[in-house]
Design a binder for these strands. Structure first.
Length: 426
RNA sequence: GUGGGCGUAGCUCAGUCGGUUAGAGCGCCGGGUUGUGGUUCCGGAGGCCGGGGGUUCGAAUCCCCUCGCCCACCCCA
C-alpha cells in the first residue's frame, strides 16, 4: 500500500480537538447572536446543482467554482449560501410566513490561489431576511453583525461598516447609458468592485474596454470612478438625483441605525458595491480599521434574485461573515480563547473485580450530566492521576478492592487535592 | 504565475567549507518498592535528515529534478 500524505488537500484544514473547540466557540457566538435576533437556523447540502451558480456577470465567485460531472449530472460545491437559500425559499414559497428570518453557518468552497487569510474552504455565517422590502431589515442585520463583534470582545473602533446603495449608481446611469445598454449594470458593479485593489486606471480601462461587456465611454468611465470617492451622507446627497428613492433609503437606514446606537460605526462609502451580481439595493461590507485585511463580512439587498431562477421576485437581504478574516483579526488582538477540555470526572477501577461497580458509577454520573471518562484497562494510579490532570478533569473517582468491599468510592478533587468517600451506587 | 526562504525525532529547531554509531528542548513511555497528579531526579523508545537521480572512496551536508510548506509580489472578492 502506497503511503498517503498526512496533509489535507491544499487550502483545507483539519480540526484537532483544540482547533474545534475554538471553531465551536466562534460559531457559538454566531449562533447565540442569531438566536437573540429571533432567527432560525437552516442548512443545505454542500453539493449543489452547478446550474444554481450559472451567471453572466463575470463574478469571481463563479469562476472559482469547484465543479464536476458525475453520471451525467453537473454538480458543484457551494461557493456561497444565498443560492441554496433561494432554492429552499422557492420550494416552500406558498407556505412560508413572511418576513422570514433564517441564519446558517455553511462551509463554502472556492478554488483560488492561496495567500494569508485565504483558504479554499471556510465557514460563513449567513443571516437573511426574506419578504421585507424596507431597510429596517438591513438595520436589523447590521445590528446583529455588531452584536457578534461585541461578543468577541473586539473594541468598538476596530472595524467599520461601509454602506452604499447600488440604486444610487443605477439612477445616475439610467437616463442615458443604461437605456442603450440594458443588462450591463450587474457587470458594471462587478468591475467597480475591484477599484480598491486594481486601482482607478484598471477599472476605467475595463469599463470602457470596447471588447468588454460594459463598453462605457472613456470619459464617462473616468467621471463615474471619480464619483465613487465620496464618503458620508452629504456626499451621497451631492451625487443623487432629485427625490432619489435610494437616497431616501439611506437616510431611513441611518435613522434606524441611530436608534440602535450604531450610527457612528457605519459610514456611507460610494466605492462599496460588492462583487456579487445579484445585489440590487443597499450593499455593505465590514472592514478593519487599518484596512489591513480583506472584508470581514459583506452583504446587501437582492430583491430580484429569484428572477434568475425563473420565479417571481421576492424582497430579500442578507450577509455572509466568513470565519477566516475574523479569526486572523481576533488572533492578532489576542482575543481567540484557549479553551480547555471540559472533563468532569475520571472513573478509575483499580482492578477488574471493581470494574462492574465502576461502570455503575460512571453511568450514574453520565445520567446526571457529567462528562465522565472511564479508565479502560488496569493502570497504575500514578498514570491515571497524571492523565486526569492533563485532561483537565475536576476529580478522580477511585475504586480499589478496599473501597469496593466497604461499598464506597474515593473521590479525589484534583485542584485542591482533597479526598473524601462517597457511597457507591447499587 | 514570478521571486525568495524552508523541509532533520510527534512538535520547535541545532548540525552543513563532505568524513567514524545524527543532536537539544518540549512531548511521549518507563522507573525512583506494594493504591495518588501537577514539581523534581533517573532511564528509554522514536529519524531511509521530504522523495528521486547524480558527483565522490565517502553525502543530512555539493549538483540536478521533483513534491510539500511559508513569505512577498502578481492576480483576485
Amino acid at each position: 500500500m502506497a503511503s498517503v500524505s498526512h496533509n489535507p488537500p491544499r487550502g483545507t484544514r483539519d480540526f484537532y480537538p483544540e482547533d474545534l473547540r475554538q471553531r465551536n466557540w466562534l460559531h457559538g457566538q454566531f449562533r447565540e447572536t442569531s438566536r437573540r435576533f429571533g432567527f432560525e437556523e437552516v442548512d443545505a447540502p454542500v453539493l449543489e446543482h452547478a446550474a444554481l451558480y450559472q451567471r453572466k456577470a463575470g463574478e469571481e465567485i463563479v469562476e472559482q467554482l469547484y465543479h464536476f460531472e458525475l453520471h451525467g449530472r453537473h454538480l458543484a460545491l457551494r461557493p456561497e449560501f444565498t443560492p441554496s437559500l433561494a432554492r429552499m425559499v422557492m420550494a416552500r414559497r406558498g407556505a412560508l410566513r413572511l418576513p422570514l428570518r433564517w441564519f446558517s453557518i455553511p462551509q463554502c468552497w472556492r478554488y483560488e490561489r492561496m495567500t494569508r487569510g485565504r483558504r479554499r474552504e471556510h465557514y460563513q455565517w449567513n443571516m437573511d431576511i426574506w419578504g421585507e422590502p424596507g431597510v429596517n431589515a438591513e438595520a436589523e442585520l447590521i445590528a446583529a453583525i455588531f452584536t457578534a463583534l461585541d461578543s468577541f470582545g473586539l473594541a468598538k473602533g476596530e472595524v467599520v461598516l461601509r454602506v452604499n446603495h447600488r440604486a444610487l449608481l443605477e439612477e445616475k446611469l439610467q437616463r442615458d447609458f443604461l437605456r442603450s445598454q440594458p443588462g450591463v449594470f450587474e457587470a458594471l458593479c462587478v468591475i467597480i468592485d475591484k477599484l480598491d485593489r486594481s486601482g482607478a486606471d484598471a477599472v476605467c480601462a475595463q469599463l470602457s474596454d470596447p471588447k468588454g461587456t460594459v463598453r462605457l465611454d472613456p470619459a464617462a468611465a473616468t467621471e463615474l470612478v471619480a464619483q465613487l470617492k465620496g464618503t458620508g451622507l452629504e456626499a451621497a446627497a451631492r451625487g443623487a438625483k432629485e427625490n432619489s428613492p435610494a437616497l431616501a433609503d439611506l437616510h431611513t437606514l441611518f435613522t434606524a441605525l441611530d436608534a440602535y446606537g450604531l450610527a457612528e460605526r457605519v459610514r456611507f462609502d460610494a466605492s462599496v458595491v460588492r462583487g456579487l451580481a445579484y445585489y440590487t439595493g443597499i450593499v455593505f461590507e465590514l472592514r478593519d480599521k487599518g484596512n489591513k485585511f480583506r472584508a470581514l463580512c459583506g452583504g446587501g439587498r437582492y430583491d430580484r434574485l429569484l428572477e434568475n431562477f425563473g420565479d417571481k421576485p421576492l424582497p430579500a437581504v442578507g450577509f455572509g461573515f466568513g470565519d477566516a478574516v475574523i479569526s486572523e483579526l481576533l488572533a492578532e488582538r489576542g482575543l481567540l480563547p484557549e479553551l480547555p477540555r471540559a472533563l468532569d470526572a475520571v472513573v478509575y477501577p483499580m482492578s477488574e473485580a471493581t470494574r462492574p461497580a465502576a461502570v455503575r458509577l460512571v453511568t450514574k454520573l453520565r445520567d446526571e450530566g457529567c462528562a465522565a471518562e472511564l479508565v479502560l484497562t488496569e493502570l497504575r494510579a500514578k498514570r491515571v492521576f497524571s492523565h486526569a490532570d492533563r485532561a483537565g478533569a475536576a476529580r478522580v473517582y477511585l475504586i480499589g478492592d478496599d473501597e469496593h468491599a466497604r461499598g464506597v468510592v474515593r473521590v479525589h478533587e484534583l485542584e485542591s487535592g482533597e479526598e473524601r468517600e462517597e457511597p457507591l451506587p447499587r
